[in-house]
Amino acid sequence: MLTVHGDIRSGNCLKVKWLLDRLGHDYRWVETDVMAGTTRSTEFLALNPAGQVPAVVLADGRTLAQSNAILGFFGEGTPFVPTDPWDRARMYEWLFWEQYSHEPYIAVARFQRTFLGKAADEIEPRLMERGRAALERMEAALAGAD
């Protein structure tokens, strides 16, 4: 059976969970609490030496990490991964952008507010500025789109 190691509070883990649910995959979710240091345990590091979630273990024992690689793997052959090379490249462009320009700013600020209890004015101004810029980029791209 497919096993997903993930922290339900993580957007990277949620996007994997949502795709698997949407595609109707049967899987076992192993809650992996990042805040408790679970990703630094010997057992978890044997699955993913990078110590990051999500990590999936396929039925044959192979392990795959990195949320966007997991999305690509399970999305292949479904409507979620375009067959046209240009459209597929554009999809990957957004996935790469998300990890480089969304996650380090919006997700980090969310983590600091939600889980570390910081007030908005306690978060590094550059982080907030870059997060706003990322949101503006997404809004502009989505304007007029289906």
Results as ranks from 00 to 15, higher is better:
residue 1 M to P: 15
residue 3 T to A: 05
residue 4 V to E: 02
residue 5 H to C: 08
residue 6 G to L: 03
residue 6 G to I: 00
residue 7 D to Y: 13
residue 8 I to W: 14
residue 11 G to N: 08
residue 12 N to K: 08
residue 13 C to A: 12
residue 13 C to P: 12
residue 15 K to M: 03
residue 15 K to A: 01
residue 16 V to R: 00
residue 17 K to R: 13
residue 17 K to V: 00
residue 17 K to G: 05
residue 18 W to G: 02
residue 18 W to Y: 13
residue 18 W to R: 05
residue 19 L to C: 03
residue 20 L to N: 04
residue 22 R to A: 05
residue 23 L to P: 12
residue 27 Y to H: 13
residue 28 R to A: 14
residue 31 E to M: 11
residue 33 D to F: 13
residue 34 V to H: 09
residue 35 M to C: 15
residue 35 M to W: 15
residue 35 M to I: 09
residue 35 M to H: 14
residue 35 M to A: 15
residue 36 A to L: 07
residue 36 A to D: 06
residue 36 A to V: 09
residue 38 T to D: 15
residue 39 T to F: 08
residue 42 T to F: 04
residue 44 F to V: 04
residue 46 A to G: 15
residue 46 A to H: 12
residue 47 L to R: 02
residue 52 Q to R: 12
residue 53 V to E: 01
residue 53 V to H: 02
residue 57 V to S: 07
residue 59 A to G: 15
residue 61 G to R: 04
residue 62 R to L: 05
residue 62 R to I: 11
residue 63 T to D: 04
residue 64 L to K: 03
residue 65 A to E: 03
residue 67 S to W: 00
residue 69 A to L: 00
residue 70 I to L: 05
residue 71 L to W: 02
residue 74 F to Q: 02
residue 74 F to H: 00
residue 74 F to Y: 06
residue 75 G to F: 01
residue 78 T to Q: 00
residue 79 P to D: 02
residue 80 F to K: 01
residue 82 P to A: 01
residue 82 P to M: 02
residue 83 T to F: 01
residue 84 D to F: 03
residue 86 W to I: 11
residue 87 D to Y: 04
residue 87 D to I: 05
residue 90 R to N: 04
residue 91 M to W: 03
residue 93 E to Q: 13
residue 94 W to C: 12
residue 95 L to D: 01
residue 100 Y to G: 10
residue 102 H to I: 10
residue 103 E to T: 14
residue 106 I to V: 15
residue 106 I to F: 10
residue 108 V to P: 07
residue 108 V to F: 08
residue 109 A to F: 08
residue 110 R to K: 14
residue 111 F to N: 09
residue 111 F to S: 07
residue 112 Q to Y: 05
residue 114 T to A: 15
residue 115 F to Q: 07
residue 115 F to A: 12
residue 115 F to V: 10
residue 115 F to Y: 10
residue 117 G to C: 05
residue 118 K to H: 13
residue 120 A to T: 11
residue 120 A to E: 13
residue 121 D to T: 09
residue 121 D to M: 06
residue 123 I to L: 06
residue 124 E to R: 10
residue 125 P to R: 08
residue 125 P to Y: 14
residue 125 P to M: 10
residue 125 P to T: 11
residue 125 P to F: 09
residue 126 R to I: 12
residue 127 L to Q: 13
residue 128 M to L: 14
residue 128 M to E: 06
residue 129 E to K: 11
residue 130 R to M: 11
residue 131 G to V: 04
residue 137 R to A: 11
residue 137 R to S: 14
residue 138 M to V: 15
residue 140 A to K: 15
residue 141 A to Q: 12
residue 143 A to M: 11
residue 144 G to F: 07
residue 145 A to Q: 13
residue 146 D to E: 08
